[in-house]
Simulated scan of single mutants.
Amino acid sequence: MISYKDAGVDIDAGNSFVEGIKPFVKSTLTPNVIGGIGSFSGAFRLPSGYNKPTLLAATDGVGTKLRLAIDSGKLDSVGIDLVAMCVNDLICNFATPMFFLDYYATGKLDINSAKEVVSGIAKGCVIAKCALIGGETAEMPSMYSSGDFDLAGFAVGVAEEDEIDRSKFVNEGDILVALPSSGLHSNGFSLARAVIKKEKLNLGSEFEGKTLLETLLEPTRIYVDEFLRLKDSINAMAHITGGGIVENLPRVLPNGLGAKIQRSAIKTPKIFELIAKSVEQSEMDRTFNCGVGMVLVVPNDKVDYVLANSDGYIIGQIIKGSGVEML
């Protein structure tokens, strides 16, 4: 007779993992969470105070940044990345994140590694002020090599229906304010890893006060605090992910309006300068955030307030036209 464990799936290990992550999950719970971990689904009470409450959802992964984390054994921050990539999209539609779910798939469940990842997810949820209300752990020995795993995240937020489409609030003359990224975030790692391989860079070498590996794995910045603090003073937000500013900023621009950006105004971290030694500028522009994690579209009379209440700085302006002009 063959057992499930003989086939490569350890039910007892899965149960032990669930018990082990309960403290992490508990740390994220908010008053609107109904029930706890272990049910067939997560339950969340809709917040009050909305005239036309509308649910918004976002899903994402960590990309090949995960390959770097697995190979190095540094797994404590990719969970933060996972949350960030989802909630940073939600707030661009003026949705306040409410809850998060994760999917963790692996060939053979390593409880300690999985707990490290989920602890990062919980940290990300705390930063994003959303509850981790569920998830799924799949052990699939025929799908993943030993030690490998993949992650997917799912975030749900709530917004006023009339506030979701931000393009209708954008006007000619609005000022573009950049919120700095914490590094590469979770985009462009296939290209970054190719540069590292081509240039034979040492991941353990010192770089800007820490190792190059630590710089690359710096967790994605979560901008929920800034959104909640500034939402009444901004017209739109663009999350700068894959595609860079040139492809993401137009997503919040109405027909007839474009953006003019002063490239020299962008505060670019050294890690992008290192990669740019082997990559054309046009390819950098459409692959990486290049130091700008979020762009805020701000009316002129609110610029001083936004600058005084964030670490943002001016990089450009909304103009007649289309697309993004990098000067």
Rank of each mutant, 00 (worst) to 15 (best):
A152P: 01
L213K: 10
I133C: 05
S190F: 13
G107R: 05
K115V: 00
L179G: 01
F99I: 05
Y103C: 01
N171K: 15
E163M: 14
L191R: 01
I111F: 09
A159F: 06
K129T: 07
E163Q: 12
A178H: 02
F149Q: 02
A138R: 11
A131W: 03
G173V: 00
R193T: 11
S190M: 15
V170Q: 05
A131E: 01
G120K: 01
A192M: 05
G157M: 01
F207V: 03
E161R: 13
L151E: 02
E161H: 02
F99T: 07
E218A: 13
L132G: 08
N187E: 10
T106A: 12
K115T: 09
A194Y: 09
L216V: 11
G204R: 11
A128T: 08
E161K: 12
S142K: 11
E208K: 11
M98Y: 03
A152T: 10
A159P: 10
L212Y: 13
S186F: 04
G173A: 11
Y144E: 02
G147E: 10
A105R: 11
R193Q: 15
L101E: 12
I196D: 00
V177Q: 10
D150F: 06
N187G: 07
E218C: 07
A192D: 05
A178E: 04
R166V: 15
T211D: 11
M98W: 01
S190C: 04
F169C: 09
G124D: 00
E199M: 14
T106W: 05
S181A: 11
T137N: 04
E136T: 10
G157E: 04
T96N: 09
C125G: 13
K108R: 14
S113E: 13
R193K: 10
E163I: 09
F169K: 13
S190H: 14
H185I: 00
N93R: 13
K200F: 02
Y144N: 05
G183N: 00
T106N: 10
V126Y: 01
C130W: 00
V195E: 04
K129Q: 14
E139M: 08
S182T: 03
G134K: 02
T96D: 09
M98K: 08
A138V: 05
G134P: 00
I121T: 06
L191N: 01
V156H: 00
N171R: 15
A178C: 07
G134E: 08
L151Q: 01
S113N: 15
F100H: 01
N112M: 12
E136W: 03
C125H: 02
V195C: 12
F94H: 06
G147S: 10
A95T: 07
V158N: 00
G107D: 09
A159T: 15
Y103G: 06
